[in-house]
Design a protein around this nucleic acid. Structure first.
Length: 215
DNA sequence: GCCAACGTTGGC
DNA sequence: GCCAACGTTGGC
């Protein structure tokens, strides 16, 4: 159904094989909760930055399963792939500027029978130039993007876990006027990379756990 | 900088 | 396959 050959616009999915060497970030990402002796009056100015815990955010990234499915990500080397082919500036800017190593990603299947969130993933490499834009043979080629002045960026995403069930768009829409009233997916359908608030994330993770009623 | 024409996304 | 929403392009 979906032509794999279409050009030029934002194509949500990465499709080339990850050539990136996804080294698992040397992680400060999860640890670093520094325990300090509370009794002593510490000179705050130099050392302890109690605000420290790594700031992580949540994102939703769409991919067409015919182009790049969650199983394709799982089967990539180290279950990691770069997210190439995004040709929309708003989405690109998020990848270039705001996504950080350790951020969580909701992996969404779009343009398919049952659109919805299918898995969790994680950012393992921050924004860097999308090389497919440089390649005249790539369907994502953009002559305006050069190595000296790259126009498109991507991140590397690593699989975390599948959802125990698909949390479908249909289901999410039921909360459009309630818990998920601000969710971009429901209001700005066409943005392929988008931020998710902590509250939305919590809610979605609860939905995942919920058994669906028979029906 | 406006805005009409055009192209794409993506649910249905 | 249809088509609404919306982003991009380019003439002026």
């Amino acid at each position: 159904m979906r032509a794999l050959t279409q050009q030029t616009t934002e194509k949500t999915a990465p499709k080339s094989k990850a050539d990136s060497k996804p080294k698992k970030a040397k992680t400060t990402a999860t640890a670093s909760k520094k325990v300090f002796k509370s009794e002593e009056k510490k000179d705050v100015s130099t050392s302890s930055a109690p605000e420290e815990g790594p700031r992580t955010s949540v994102w939703l990234m769409k991919s067409e399963p015919d182009t790049f499915s969650i199983d394709a990500l799982i089967n990539s080397p180290d279950s990691t792939s770069h997210w190439d082919g995004v040709r929309n500036h708003e989405a690109k800017n998020l990848m270039k500027n705001l996504m950080k190593v350790g951020d969580r990603v909701l992996f969404y299947h779009s343009n398919t029978k049952e659109p919805g969130i299918v898995a969790l993933a994680e950012i393992v490499r921050e924004g860097y130039p999308d090389h497919t834009a440089f390649d005249p043979k790539s369907e994502y080629y953009d002559e305006k993007s050069t190595k000296e002045d790259p126009r498109w960026f991507m991140v590397d995403v690593k699989f975390t876990r599948k959802f125990k069930r698909i949390v479908t768009l249909k289901e999410l829409q039921q909360y459009k006027d309630k818990e998920l009233s601000g969710m971009k997916l429901l209001n700005r359908g066409r943005l392929s990379v988008q931020p998710v608030t902590d509250q939305e994330m919590d809610f979605i993770l609860c939905l995942e756990q919920q058994e669906l009623k028979e029906g």
